[in-house]
Design a protein around this nucleic acid. Structure first.
Length: 473
RNA sequence: CGCGGGAUGGAGGAGUGGUACCUCGGGAGGCUCAUAACCUCCAGACACCGGUUCGAAUCCGGUUCCCGCAACCA
Protein backbone atom coordinates (compact mmCIF):
# COMPACT_ATOMS: atom_id res chain seq x y z
CA UNK A 1 0.00 0.00 0.00
CA UNK A 2 1.59 3.25 -1.07
CA UNK A 3 1.58 6.18 1.28
CA UNK A 4 0.48 9.65 0.50
CA UNK A 5 0.92 12.91 2.34
CA UNK A 6 -1.56 15.74 1.88
CA UNK A 7 -1.42 19.11 3.59
CA UNK A 8 -3.08 22.48 3.45
CA UNK A 9 -1.16 25.64 4.16
CA UNK A 10 -1.55 26.73 7.74
CA UNK A 11 -3.61 29.90 8.12
CA UNK A 12 -2.36 32.85 10.10
CA UNK A 13 -4.50 33.28 13.18
CA UNK A 14 -5.07 37.01 13.13
CA UNK A 15 -8.68 36.61 12.00
CA UNK A 16 -11.53 34.13 12.02
CA UNK A 17 -11.50 31.25 9.54
CA UNK A 18 -12.00 32.56 6.04
CA UNK A 19 -14.11 30.90 3.39
CA UNK A 20 -11.06 30.65 1.15
CA UNK A 21 -9.38 28.48 3.70
CA UNK A 22 -12.53 26.41 4.03
CA UNK A 23 -12.29 25.79 0.29
CA UNK A 24 -8.67 24.75 0.60
CA UNK A 25 -9.22 22.37 3.45
CA UNK A 26 -12.25 20.84 1.76
CA UNK A 27 -10.24 20.21 -1.38
CA UNK A 28 -7.58 18.56 0.73
CA UNK A 29 -10.18 16.55 2.59
CA UNK A 30 -11.78 15.34 -0.62
CA UNK A 31 -8.40 14.20 -1.90
CA UNK A 32 -7.50 12.54 1.39
CA UNK A 33 -10.74 10.61 1.52
CA UNK A 34 -10.49 9.69 -2.12
CA UNK A 35 -6.97 8.33 -1.89
CA UNK A 36 -7.80 6.38 1.26
CA UNK A 37 -10.70 4.83 -0.62
CA UNK A 38 -8.36 3.98 -3.48
CA UNK A 39 -6.25 2.04 -1.04
CA UNK A 40 -3.50 4.49 -0.16
CA UNK A 41 -2.20 5.04 3.31
CA UNK A 42 -2.89 8.75 3.73
CA UNK A 43 -1.64 11.32 6.21
CA UNK A 44 -3.63 14.53 6.03
CA UNK A 45 -2.19 17.57 7.80
CA UNK A 46 -3.48 21.00 8.63
CA UNK A 47 -2.88 23.47 11.44
CA UNK A 48 -2.28 27.09 12.33
CA UNK A 49 0.54 29.62 12.06
CA UNK A 50 0.78 31.46 15.35
CA UNK A 51 3.93 33.57 15.38
CA UNK A 52 4.75 37.00 14.07
CA UNK A 53 4.34 40.65 14.58
CA UNK A 54 0.73 40.96 13.49
CA UNK A 55 -0.39 38.39 15.99
CA UNK A 56 1.51 40.05 18.79
CA UNK A 57 -0.02 43.34 17.77
CA UNK A 58 -3.55 41.93 17.71
CA UNK A 59 -3.14 40.36 21.09
CA UNK A 60 -1.84 43.62 22.51
CA UNK A 61 -4.75 45.50 20.99
CA UNK A 62 -7.09 43.20 22.80
CA UNK A 63 -5.02 43.45 25.91
CA UNK A 64 -4.56 39.71 25.96
CA UNK A 65 -1.64 37.52 26.68
CA UNK A 66 -0.31 36.31 23.33
CA UNK A 67 -0.36 32.66 24.22
CA UNK A 68 -3.98 32.98 25.34
CA UNK A 69 -4.80 34.80 22.15
CA UNK A 70 -3.36 32.08 19.92
CA UNK A 71 -4.93 29.35 22.03
CA UNK A 72 -8.28 30.93 21.42
CA UNK A 73 -7.76 31.09 17.66
CA UNK A 74 -6.32 27.63 17.39
CA UNK A 75 -9.56 26.42 18.94
CA UNK A 76 -11.59 28.44 16.42
CA UNK A 77 -9.77 26.79 13.55
CA UNK A 78 -9.99 23.37 15.11
CA UNK A 79 -13.75 23.71 15.13
CA UNK A 80 -13.69 23.54 11.35
CA UNK A 81 -13.03 19.84 11.63
CA UNK A 82 -16.46 19.19 12.98
CA UNK A 83 -18.23 21.92 11.04
CA UNK A 84 -16.96 20.64 7.69
CA UNK A 85 -16.60 16.98 8.64
CA UNK A 86 -12.89 16.86 7.94
CA UNK A 87 -10.73 13.78 8.10
CA UNK A 88 -7.38 15.34 8.93
CA UNK A 89 -4.90 13.22 10.86
CA UNK A 90 -2.99 16.08 12.44
CA UNK A 91 -3.45 19.66 13.50
CA UNK A 92 -0.09 21.33 13.91
CA UNK A 93 0.41 24.51 15.89
CA UNK A 94 3.59 26.45 15.34
CA UNK A 95 3.76 27.10 19.07
CA UNK A 96 3.99 23.35 19.70
CA UNK A 97 7.27 22.36 21.30
CA UNK A 98 8.17 19.78 18.69
CA UNK A 99 7.42 22.25 15.92
CA UNK A 100 9.70 24.87 17.45
CA UNK A 101 12.46 22.31 17.73
CA UNK A 102 12.00 21.24 14.14
CA UNK A 103 12.16 24.84 12.96
CA UNK A 104 15.40 25.30 14.86
CA UNK A 105 16.77 22.07 13.46
CA UNK A 106 16.11 23.00 9.85
CA UNK A 107 17.71 26.37 10.58
CA UNK A 108 20.83 24.64 11.87
CA UNK A 109 21.02 22.45 8.80
CA UNK A 110 20.75 25.44 6.52
CA UNK A 111 23.52 27.09 8.53
CA UNK A 112 25.65 23.97 8.18
CA UNK A 113 25.10 24.16 4.44
CA UNK A 114 26.37 27.71 4.46
CA UNK A 115 23.04 29.09 3.34
CA UNK A 116 22.41 31.39 6.27
CA UNK A 117 24.48 34.47 6.93
CA UNK A 118 24.22 37.69 8.86
CA UNK A 119 23.92 41.00 7.10
CA UNK A 120 23.19 44.57 7.97
CA UNK A 121 19.97 45.68 6.43
CA UNK A 122 19.21 49.32 6.03
CA UNK A 123 15.91 50.59 4.85
CA UNK A 124 13.03 52.93 5.24
CA UNK A 125 10.72 51.70 7.91
CA UNK A 126 7.08 52.66 8.31
CA UNK A 127 5.95 52.60 11.92
CA UNK A 128 2.33 52.41 10.82
CA UNK A 129 2.88 49.19 8.88
CA UNK A 130 5.72 48.06 11.11
CA UNK A 131 7.48 47.03 7.96
CA UNK A 132 10.24 48.12 5.64
CA UNK A 133 9.23 50.02 2.55
CA UNK A 134 10.68 49.82 -0.91
CA UNK A 135 11.85 52.93 -2.68
CA UNK A 136 9.54 52.30 -5.60
CA UNK A 137 6.50 51.86 -3.35
CA UNK A 138 6.88 55.30 -1.88
CA UNK A 139 4.34 57.95 -2.82
CA UNK A 140 5.96 61.38 -2.57
CA UNK A 141 8.49 59.87 -0.26
CA UNK A 142 5.83 58.59 2.11
CA UNK A 143 4.30 55.24 2.88
CA UNK A 144 1.25 54.72 0.63
CA UNK A 145 -0.74 53.39 3.60
CA UNK A 146 0.33 56.09 6.02
CA UNK A 147 0.89 59.31 4.07
CA UNK A 148 0.92 61.38 7.24
CA UNK A 149 3.89 59.59 8.76
CA UNK A 150 7.44 60.07 7.73
CA UNK A 151 9.23 56.81 7.04
CA UNK A 152 12.30 56.50 9.21
CA UNK A 153 15.61 55.01 8.28
CA UNK A 154 16.41 51.97 10.33
CA UNK A 155 19.46 49.79 10.31
CA UNK A 156 19.07 46.27 11.55
CA UNK A 157 21.26 43.23 11.43
CA UNK A 158 19.42 40.12 10.34
CA UNK A 159 20.06 36.63 9.11
CA UNK A 160 19.57 36.03 5.43
CA UNK A 161 18.84 32.87 3.51
CA UNK A 162 20.91 32.30 0.38
CA UNK A 163 17.99 31.77 -1.98
CA UNK A 164 20.24 32.95 -4.78
CA UNK A 165 22.13 29.67 -4.52
CA UNK A 166 19.10 27.74 -5.63
CA UNK A 167 18.10 29.30 -8.91
CA UNK A 168 19.45 26.45 -11.00
CA UNK A 169 18.11 23.58 -8.96
CA UNK A 170 14.76 25.28 -8.52
CA UNK A 171 14.44 25.56 -12.27
CA UNK A 172 15.16 21.86 -12.54
CA UNK A 173 12.57 21.17 -9.88
CA UNK A 174 9.99 23.27 -11.71
CA UNK A 175 10.64 21.49 -14.98
CA UNK A 176 8.66 18.60 -13.60
CA UNK A 177 5.07 19.12 -14.68
CA UNK A 178 3.79 17.58 -11.50
CA UNK A 179 5.49 20.21 -9.37
CA UNK A 180 2.72 22.77 -9.83
CA UNK A 181 -0.92 22.58 -10.89
CA UNK A 182 -2.33 24.40 -12.80
CA UNK A 183 0.41 24.36 -15.35
CA UNK A 184 0.24 28.06 -16.19
CA UNK A 185 1.09 28.83 -12.60
CA UNK A 186 4.11 26.59 -12.96
CA UNK A 187 5.16 28.76 -15.88
CA UNK A 188 4.69 31.83 -13.73
CA UNK A 189 6.97 30.31 -11.14
CA UNK A 190 9.61 29.43 -13.72
CA UNK A 191 9.47 32.93 -15.08
CA UNK A 192 9.89 34.32 -11.61
CA UNK A 193 12.90 32.16 -10.83
CA UNK A 194 14.50 32.93 -14.17
CA UNK A 195 14.37 36.60 -13.40
CA UNK A 196 16.80 36.03 -10.60
CA UNK A 197 16.43 35.33 -6.91
CA UNK A 198 17.52 37.55 -4.10
CA UNK A 199 18.44 36.41 -0.64
CA UNK A 200 15.76 36.93 1.99
CA UNK A 201 15.93 38.07 5.54
CA UNK A 202 14.71 35.31 7.79
CA UNK A 203 15.04 36.81 11.23
CA UNK A 204 14.12 39.88 13.23
CA UNK A 205 15.77 41.53 16.17
CA UNK A 206 14.22 40.22 19.30
CA UNK A 207 13.90 43.66 20.82
CA UNK A 208 11.61 44.65 17.98
CA UNK A 209 9.71 41.40 17.71
CA UNK A 210 9.81 38.88 20.49
CA UNK A 211 6.98 36.57 19.44
CA UNK A 212 8.75 33.96 17.40
CA UNK A 213 11.04 30.97 17.42
CA UNK A 214 14.45 31.83 18.91
CA UNK A 215 17.29 31.61 16.44
CA UNK A 216 19.64 28.83 17.52
CA UNK A 217 22.82 30.27 19.01
CA UNK A 218 21.73 33.89 18.92
CA UNK A 219 19.57 35.14 21.74
CA UNK A 220 19.14 38.53 20.07
CA UNK A 221 17.21 37.21 17.10
CA UNK A 222 13.99 35.36 16.41
CA UNK A 223 13.00 33.70 13.17
CA UNK A 224 10.85 35.61 10.78
CA UNK A 225 7.48 33.85 10.75
CA UNK A 226 7.45 32.22 7.36
CA UNK A 227 10.70 30.39 7.91
CA UNK A 228 9.28 28.80 11.02
CA UNK A 229 5.79 28.32 9.59
CA UNK A 230 6.87 26.42 6.47
CA UNK A 231 8.56 23.84 8.62
CA UNK A 232 5.14 22.70 9.87
CA UNK A 233 4.77 20.37 6.90
CA UNK A 234 7.46 18.13 8.27
CA UNK A 235 7.40 18.96 11.97
CA UNK A 236 3.90 17.50 12.00
CA UNK A 237 5.44 14.20 10.92
CA UNK A 238 7.97 14.22 13.73
CA UNK A 239 10.91 15.35 11.61
CA UNK A 240 13.87 15.06 12.00
CA UNK A 241 13.11 11.73 13.63
CA UNK A 242 10.12 9.63 13.29
CA UNK A 243 8.78 6.75 11.32
CA UNK A 244 5.96 8.92 10.08
CA UNK A 245 8.34 11.27 8.35
CA UNK A 246 10.05 8.41 6.57
CA UNK A 247 6.84 6.75 5.61
CA UNK A 248 4.82 9.70 4.43
CA UNK A 249 7.36 12.29 3.33
CA UNK A 250 10.40 10.38 2.15
CA UNK A 251 8.78 7.26 0.81
CA UNK A 252 5.33 8.61 0.20
CA UNK A 253 4.02 10.93 -2.44
CA UNK A 254 3.65 14.44 -1.09
CA UNK A 255 0.95 16.89 -2.08
CA UNK A 256 0.43 20.41 -0.81
CA UNK A 257 -2.70 22.48 -1.36
CA UNK A 258 -2.36 26.25 -1.27
CA UNK A 259 -3.88 29.49 -2.47
CA UNK A 260 -2.69 31.11 -5.69
CA UNK A 261 -0.79 33.80 -3.77
CA UNK A 262 1.44 31.20 -2.19
CA UNK A 263 3.63 30.19 -5.13
CA UNK A 264 6.72 32.04 -3.98
CA UNK A 265 6.48 30.64 -0.50
CA UNK A 266 5.53 27.07 -1.25
CA UNK A 267 7.11 26.31 -4.60
CA UNK A 268 10.21 28.45 -4.30
CA UNK A 269 11.30 29.38 -0.79
CA UNK A 270 10.10 26.21 0.93
CA UNK A 271 11.59 24.02 -1.77
CA UNK A 272 14.91 25.84 -1.47
CA UNK A 273 14.83 25.33 2.29
CA UNK A 274 14.26 21.63 1.79
CA UNK A 275 17.08 21.46 -0.71
CA UNK A 276 19.38 23.28 1.67
CA UNK A 277 18.55 20.88 4.50
CA UNK A 278 18.91 17.87 2.18
CA UNK A 279 15.28 16.89 2.51
CA UNK A 280 13.15 15.62 -0.34
CA UNK A 281 11.24 18.38 -2.11
CA UNK A 282 7.45 18.38 -2.36
CA UNK A 283 6.21 16.20 -5.21
CA UNK A 284 3.32 18.38 -6.20
CA UNK A 285 1.57 21.52 -5.13
CA UNK A 286 -1.93 22.44 -6.18
CA UNK A 287 -2.92 26.11 -6.17
CA UNK A 288 -6.59 27.03 -5.88
CA UNK A 289 -8.21 30.35 -6.76
CA UNK A 290 -9.88 32.92 -4.55
CA UNK A 291 -13.51 33.42 -3.68
CA UNK A 292 -15.05 36.83 -4.17
CA UNK A 293 -18.50 37.99 -3.28
CA UNK A 294 -20.64 40.25 -5.43
CA UNK A 295 -17.72 40.98 -7.72
CA UNK A 296 -15.48 42.20 -4.91
CA UNK A 297 -12.96 40.76 -2.58
CA UNK A 298 -14.63 39.86 0.69
CA UNK A 299 -13.94 42.46 3.30
CA UNK A 300 -15.41 43.53 6.56
CA UNK A 301 -15.67 47.14 5.47
CA UNK A 302 -17.73 46.24 2.40
CA UNK A 303 -19.77 43.88 4.51
CA UNK A 304 -19.80 41.07 1.97
CA UNK A 305 -17.97 38.50 4.04
CA UNK A 306 -19.43 35.02 3.96
CA UNK A 307 -17.89 32.84 6.63
CA UNK A 308 -17.66 29.06 6.56
CA UNK A 309 -19.64 28.87 9.78
CA UNK A 310 -22.46 30.92 8.28
CA UNK A 311 -22.63 28.49 5.38
CA UNK A 312 -22.78 25.52 7.69
CA UNK A 313 -25.43 27.16 9.79
CA UNK A 314 -27.64 27.88 6.81
CA UNK A 315 -27.14 24.84 4.61
CA UNK A 316 -25.54 22.23 6.81
CA UNK A 317 -22.18 20.50 6.62
CA UNK A 318 -22.85 18.31 3.60
CA UNK A 319 -24.30 21.11 1.53
CA UNK A 320 -21.41 23.41 2.42
CA UNK A 321 -18.99 20.80 1.13
CA UNK A 322 -21.08 20.50 -1.99
CA UNK A 323 -21.35 24.23 -2.61
CA UNK A 324 -17.65 24.95 -2.20
CA UNK A 325 -16.33 21.92 -4.00
CA UNK A 326 -18.69 21.91 -6.96
CA UNK A 327 -19.58 25.51 -7.56
CA UNK A 328 -16.32 27.20 -6.75
CA UNK A 329 -13.91 26.78 -9.63
CA UNK A 330 -10.88 24.74 -8.51
CA UNK A 331 -8.22 27.09 -9.89
CA UNK A 332 -9.87 30.26 -11.16
CA UNK A 333 -11.38 32.93 -8.96
CA UNK A 334 -15.07 32.47 -8.31
CA UNK A 335 -17.85 34.70 -7.17
CA UNK A 336 -20.47 33.64 -4.69
CA UNK A 337 -23.50 35.43 -3.31
CA UNK A 338 -26.26 34.17 -1.05
CA UNK A 339 -28.61 34.22 -4.05
CA UNK A 340 -26.37 31.93 -6.06
CA UNK A 341 -25.76 29.65 -3.12
CA UNK A 342 -29.51 29.28 -2.58
CA UNK A 343 -29.98 28.50 -6.24
CA UNK A 344 -27.28 25.84 -6.31
CA UNK A 345 -28.50 24.31 -3.11
CA UNK A 346 -32.06 24.00 -4.32
CA UNK A 347 -31.36 22.93 -7.87
CA UNK A 348 -29.05 20.02 -7.24
CA UNK A 349 -29.29 19.04 -3.64
CA UNK A 350 -32.99 19.48 -2.90
CA UNK A 351 -34.42 18.87 -6.37
CA UNK A 352 -31.60 16.60 -7.50
CA UNK A 353 -30.17 13.95 -5.25
CA UNK A 354 -32.55 14.67 -2.37
CA UNK A 355 -35.71 14.32 -4.36
CA UNK A 356 -34.43 11.34 -6.34
CA UNK A 357 -33.67 9.48 -3.14
CA UNK A 358 -37.12 10.22 -1.73
CA UNK A 359 -38.73 9.22 -5.00
CA UNK A 360 -37.08 5.84 -5.27
CA UNK A 361 -37.07 4.86 -1.64
CA UNK A 362 -40.77 5.66 -1.33
CA UNK A 363 -41.53 3.39 -4.27
CA UNK A 364 -39.37 0.69 -2.75
CA UNK A 365 -40.81 0.99 0.72
CA UNK A 366 -44.33 0.74 -0.67
CA UNK A 367 -43.86 -2.02 -3.21
CA UNK A 368 -40.91 -4.18 -2.24
CA UNK A 369 -41.51 -6.85 0.37
CA UNK A 370 -37.93 -6.93 1.61
CA UNK A 371 -34.70 -4.97 1.19
CA UNK A 372 -32.66 -5.65 -1.90
CA UNK A 373 -29.43 -7.60 -1.68
CA UNK A 374 -26.35 -5.52 -1.07
CA UNK A 375 -25.06 -4.68 -4.55
CA UNK A 376 -21.60 -5.96 -5.34
CA UNK A 377 -18.84 -3.42 -5.01
CA UNK A 378 -17.60 -2.40 -8.41
CA UNK A 379 -14.71 -0.21 -9.42
CA UNK A 380 -15.06 3.52 -9.68
CA UNK A 381 -15.48 4.96 -13.17
CA UNK A 382 -12.28 6.35 -14.59
CA UNK A 383 -14.01 9.55 -15.60
CA UNK A 384 -14.77 10.16 -11.95
CA UNK A 385 -11.43 9.21 -10.41
CA UNK A 386 -9.51 11.07 -13.11
CA UNK A 387 -11.47 14.22 -12.40
CA UNK A 388 -10.62 14.12 -8.72
CA UNK A 389 -7.00 13.13 -9.19
CA UNK A 390 -6.43 15.93 -11.65
CA UNK A 391 -8.01 18.41 -9.23
CA UNK A 392 -11.13 18.96 -11.34
CA UNK A 393 -13.40 18.57 -8.37
CA UNK A 394 -16.37 20.22 -10.06
CA UNK A 395 -16.21 17.71 -12.91
CA UNK A 396 -16.37 14.82 -10.49
CA UNK A 397 -19.64 16.26 -9.22
CA UNK A 398 -20.88 16.81 -12.76
CA UNK A 399 -20.31 13.15 -13.41
CA UNK A 400 -22.27 12.00 -10.37
CA UNK A 401 -25.10 14.37 -11.16
CA UNK A 402 -25.30 13.14 -14.73
CA UNK A 403 -26.21 9.79 -13.19
CA UNK A 404 -28.81 11.46 -11.01
CA UNK A 405 -30.38 13.02 -14.10
CA UNK A 406 -30.30 9.79 -16.04
CA UNK A 407 -32.02 7.91 -13.27
CA UNK A 408 -34.74 10.55 -12.93
CA UNK A 409 -35.35 10.29 -16.65
CA UNK A 410 -35.46 6.54 -16.57
CA UNK A 411 -38.16 6.56 -13.91
CA UNK A 412 -40.22 9.04 -15.87
CA UNK A 413 -39.88 6.94 -19.03
CA UNK A 414 -40.57 3.55 -17.44
CA UNK A 415 -43.40 4.74 -15.20
CA UNK A 416 -42.95 2.16 -12.44
CA UNK A 417 -45.77 3.78 -10.49
CA UNK A 418 -48.14 2.68 -13.27
CA UNK A 419 -46.50 -0.67 -13.89
CA UNK A 420 -47.03 -1.83 -10.31
CA UNK A 421 -50.77 -1.47 -10.77
CA UNK A 422 -50.94 -3.83 -13.73
CA UNK A 423 -47.94 -6.11 -13.21
CA UNK A 424 -46.57 -5.93 -9.67
CA UNK A 425 -43.70 -8.34 -10.32
CA UNK A 426 -42.47 -6.36 -13.27
CA UNK A 427 -42.75 -3.19 -11.25
CA UNK A 428 -40.70 -4.73 -8.46
CA UNK A 429 -37.96 -5.65 -10.88
CA UNK A 430 -37.78 -2.04 -12.05
CA UNK A 431 -37.78 -0.64 -8.53
CA UNK A 432 -35.07 -3.06 -7.48
CA UNK A 433 -32.94 -1.79 -10.33
CA UNK A 434 -33.50 1.80 -9.29
CA UNK A 435 -32.46 0.94 -5.77
CA UNK A 436 -29.28 -0.63 -7.09
CA UNK A 437 -28.51 2.42 -9.15
CA UNK A 438 -29.24 4.73 -6.25
CA UNK A 439 -26.86 2.67 -4.16
CA UNK A 440 -24.20 3.04 -6.84
CA UNK A 441 -24.67 6.81 -6.85
CA UNK A 442 -24.41 6.79 -3.07
CA UNK A 443 -21.10 4.97 -3.28
CA UNK A 444 -19.68 7.69 -5.49
CA UNK A 445 -20.43 10.25 -2.80
CA UNK A 446 -18.02 8.63 -0.36
CA UNK A 447 -15.29 11.27 -0.63
CA UNK A 448 -17.35 14.28 -1.52
CA UNK A 449 -20.44 13.97 0.68
CA UNK A 450 -19.56 11.38 3.33
CA UNK A 451 -22.77 11.61 5.36
CA UNK A 452 -25.04 11.48 2.34
CA UNK A 453 -23.10 8.44 1.21
CA UNK A 454 -23.85 6.70 4.49
CA UNK A 455 -27.51 7.64 4.56
CA UNK A 456 -28.18 6.48 1.01
CA UNK A 457 -26.45 3.17 1.52
CA UNK A 458 -28.29 2.59 4.76
CA UNK A 459 -31.69 3.52 3.39
CA UNK A 460 -31.27 1.23 0.40
CA UNK A 461 -30.12 -1.71 2.46
CA UNK A 462 -32.90 -1.27 5.01
CA UNK A 463 -35.59 -0.42 2.47
CA UNK A 464 -36.74 2.52 4.52
CA UNK A 465 -37.37 5.98 3.16
CA UNK A 466 -35.21 8.47 5.08
CA UNK A 467 -36.00 11.96 6.28
CA UNK A 468 -35.50 14.43 3.47
CA UNK A 469 -31.80 14.56 2.71
CA UNK A 470 -31.88 18.26 1.97
CA UNK A 471 -34.73 20.38 3.21
CA UNK A 472 -36.03 23.42 1.42
CA UNK A 473 -34.87 26.82 2.53
C1' C B 1 5.32 48.20 -25.75
C1' G B 2 7.86 44.44 -18.01
C1' C B 3 5.95 39.07 -17.64
C1' G B 4 1.70 35.99 -17.81
C1' G B 5 -3.60 34.52 -18.10
C1' G B 6 -8.27 35.58 -20.18
C1' A B 7 -12.82 37.66 -23.14
C1' U B 8 -18.23 31.50 -25.40
C1' G B 9 -26.22 32.53 -25.02
C1' G B 10 -29.19 36.35 -18.80
C1' A B 11 -25.36 33.70 -15.00
C1' G B 12 -21.40 29.99 -14.24
C1' G B 13 -18.48 26.52 -16.84
C1' A B 14 -16.63 22.82 -21.12
C1' G B 15 -14.81 22.92 -25.91
C1' U B 16 -6.74 23.74 -29.01
C1' G B 17 -9.41 22.92 -37.30
C1' G B 18 -14.96 19.77 -39.26
C1' U B 19 -22.62 21.03 -38.14
C1' A B 20 -21.14 24.98 -30.56
C1' C B 21 -21.85 21.40 -25.28
C1' C B 22 -23.29 21.16 -19.86
C1' U B 23 -25.64 23.28 -15.40
C1' C B 24 -28.65 27.24 -13.49
C1' G B 25 -32.15 30.85 -14.90
C1' G B 26 -36.51 32.28 -18.72
C1' G B 27 -40.89 30.42 -21.90
C1' A B 28 -44.37 26.37 -23.43
C1' G B 29 -46.17 21.45 -22.75
C1' G B 30 -46.33 16.54 -20.22
C1' C B 31 -46.52 13.41 -15.89
C1' U B 32 -48.18 12.53 -10.87
C1' C B 33 -43.93 7.85 -7.73
C1' A B 34 -41.26 12.10 -5.31
C1' U B 35 -39.19 17.55 -1.17
C1' A B 36 -44.96 22.40 -6.07
C1' A B 37 -40.32 17.78 -7.19
C1' C B 38 -39.47 14.99 -12.31
C1' C B 39 -39.54 14.56 -17.95
C1' U B 40 -39.93 16.86 -23.01
C1' C B 41 -39.60 20.92 -26.27
C1' C B 42 -38.40 26.25 -27.35
C1' A B 43 -35.67 31.08 -27.26
C1' G B 44 -30.69 32.78 -26.59
C1' A B 45 -23.63 33.09 -27.39
C1' C B 46 -17.93 32.21 -29.67
C1' A B 47 -15.30 40.93 -27.62
C1' C B 48 -13.74 43.57 -32.38
C1' C B 49 -10.83 43.85 -37.21
C1' G B 50 -7.85 41.30 -40.67
C1' G B 51 -5.13 36.78 -42.27
C1' U B 52 -4.07 31.24 -43.01
C1' U B 53 -7.43 27.11 -44.54
C1' C B 54 -12.01 23.42 -48.38
C1' G B 55 -13.30 24.52 -43.31
C1' A B 56 -11.52 28.50 -37.11
C1' A B 57 -14.39 29.58 -30.74
C1' U B 58 -10.04 26.68 -31.79
C1' C B 59 -3.93 28.73 -35.68
C1' C B 60 -1.42 33.80 -36.98
C1' G B 61 -1.33 39.42 -36.73
C1' G B 62 -3.65 43.81 -34.80
C1' U B 63 -7.44 46.54 -31.57
C1' U B 64 -10.36 47.12 -27.13
C1' C B 65 -11.39 45.50 -22.30
C1' C B 66 -10.62 42.49 -17.74
C1' C B 67 -7.42 39.83 -14.25
C1' G B 68 -2.93 37.96 -11.91
C1' C B 69 2.42 38.61 -10.95
C1' A B 70 6.44 42.37 -10.61
C1' A B 71 9.96 39.19 -3.69
C1' C B 72 9.85 39.65 2.97
C1' C B 73 2.60 40.25 2.01
C1' A B 74 3.57 35.12 7.17
Amino acid sequence: MSSKYITTTIPYVNADPHIGFALEILQADLLARHYRLMGHDVFFNTGVDEHGQKILQKAEEKGEDVQKYVDHYAAEFKKLKEALNLSNDAFVRTTDKNHIEAAQEIWKRCVAKGDIYKKKYKGLYCVGDEAFLKEKDLVDGKCPNHPTMDPIEIEEENYFFRLSNYQGVLLEYLENEKSITPDWRRKEAIDFVQNGLEDFSISREKKRLSWGVPVPGDSEQVMYVWFDALTNYISTLGWPDGEKFKKYWEKGETLQIAGKDQIRFQSIIWQAMLMSADIKTTDSIFYHGFINSGGQKMSKSIGNVISPYELVEKYGTEATRYLLLRHVHPVDDSDITWEKLDEWYTAHLVNGIGNLTARITKLAETHLESPIDRPEAIGFPKEYTDAIESFKFNEAFDYVWSLVGALDKRITDEEPFKVVKTDLEKGRVLITEYMQELYAIGRLLYSILPETNKIIKKTVLENKKPENLFGRI
